[in-house]
């Protein structure tokens, strides 16, 4: 198995290499960090709805879409990305998604162990420390004839920058997201009290992936790979791909770690457009913000409605009950907006 130890790569190259290998149907492991910061959205996300493009432009951040699932993430030189590309017919590839995560997470788990942090796998696809803080998120995709498994060892993380690249309804929620991120995401630096050198991380990853994959052979980027990367870069930079129309945006979800997520969505009710944004902790709504151009009389009732929803389990029935109880107990009126419309905006319809 070839390992491409690519160091720090400019622009989108850190992400282009594994996509190129997969599109070429070639196997390999890439270990790489972006030289500059990239705001990266998941394959099914609507870039304009998720990312604060003005902020990214003003601050010189690249914005890209990956062909891998999940939510928006910040990629920077504080992380070493491991990207494993195997052909689907390789006997090493487990046939289930869960199996892939479990099998190939062994290498990063042991890598963290080598670096002094005890980490375990938490389904579906997080690596967590003993106290339950997320230290790596993983993802994957079937691309062409290959499966791609991706993740990163987080040496250090910019907790201040991450909340700013995302579109959030207001500063209150930005602060909430920042607080949640600080509490639930950790790094090698936080856990060990030192900035672990990149070379140490890469060395451990090679050793540990070698145990899972067999002997690894160092390989440089060759002409075929470089050509495919440039071809993909043109596609990835095109408006057609970056801002590609999503048939129906999912109620957006930004997961801080397994069990902590921010969900939001928009729903066009007969009485106007509704936008909801909620923090969900262990399946309970911990905070919610409702905005839109609908009419509420009295307008001050909005705060009460938000308060009524907080504490409800993030499921259709309890949220519906909370909303209907609120309307039953108060004289608040929202013509053309009913409980079902809030549920739809919160991604709880259906």
């Amino acid at each position: 198995m070839k390992v491409y130890d690519l160091g720090l790569r400019p622009k989108l190259d850190a992400m282009l290499c594994f996509h190129a290998l997969a599109h070429l149907g070639r196997e390999g492991l890439t270990l790489v960090s972006p030289a500059s910061t990239i705001a990266c959205v998941g394959y099914f996300q609507d870039t304009r709805e998720v990312i604060d493009l003005d902020f990214c432009l003003k601050n010189g951040l690249e914005v890209m879409r990956r062909e891998v699932g999940g939510g928006a993430v910040l990629l920077d030189s504080g992380q070493v990305f491991y990207n494993l590309i195997l052909r689907m017919d390789n006997p090493l590839v487990p046939p289930t998604v869960d199996g892939v995560y479990r099998k190939f997470s062994e290498a990063p788990i042991k890598t963290y162990g080598d670096l002094g942090v005890e980490v375990s796998f938490r389904p579906i696809n997080d690596l967590v420390t003993r106290d339950g803080r997320k230290i790596a998120g993983e993802g994957g995709a079937d691309i062409g004839r290959c499966m791609v498994f991706v993740g990163s060892i987080i040496m250090d993380f910019d907790y201040e920058l991450m909340p700013n690249i995302l579109k959030v309804p207001d500063e209150k929620f930005r602060d909430k997201f920042h607080k949640s991120l600080s509490e639930n995401l950790t790094t090698l630096r936080r856990e060990t009290g030192r900035l672990v050198p990149r070379e140490e991380v890469v060395g451990a990853l090679k050793r540990r992936f070698g145990e899972v994959l067999g002997p690894l052979r160092e390989a440089p980027l060759d002409d075929e790979l470089r050509a495919k990367m440039r071809e993909l870069e043109t596609r990835f930079r095109s408006d057609e791909f970056l801002f590609r129309k999503i048939r129906k945006p999912v109620a957006r979800e930004t997961r801080v770690r397994e069990g902590v997520r921010f969900v939001d969505g928009i729903h066009k009710a007969p009485g106007g457009l509704l936008s909801c944004y909620a923090e969900v902790v262990e399946d309970v709504i911990d905070g919610v913000s409702i905005t839109g151009d609908f009419t509420m009389v009295p307008r001050a009732g909005l705060e009460g409605l938000e308060g009524a929803i907080v504490g409800a389990p993030y499921e259709p029935r309890p949220v519906r009950d909370a909303i209907e109880n609120f309307y039953g107990k108060t004289h608040v009126d929202t013509p053309g907006v009913e409980a079902g419309h809030y549920l739809a905006a919160l991604g709880l319809a259906g």
Binding site: Y43, V68, G70, Y101, G137, G139, A141, D142
Partner: peptide, 26 residues
């Protein structure tokens, strides 16, 4: 990610994608 009506497809061709567990499948 469903395909579109009126699209022509060939046997074995990827015509849509699904996401589960942060995984994008064909």
């Amino acid at each position: 990610d469903l395909p579109f009506e009126d699209d022509d497809v060939s046997a074995g061709e990827t015509c849509g994608k699904v996401q589960s567990s942060k995984w994008v499948g064909k």
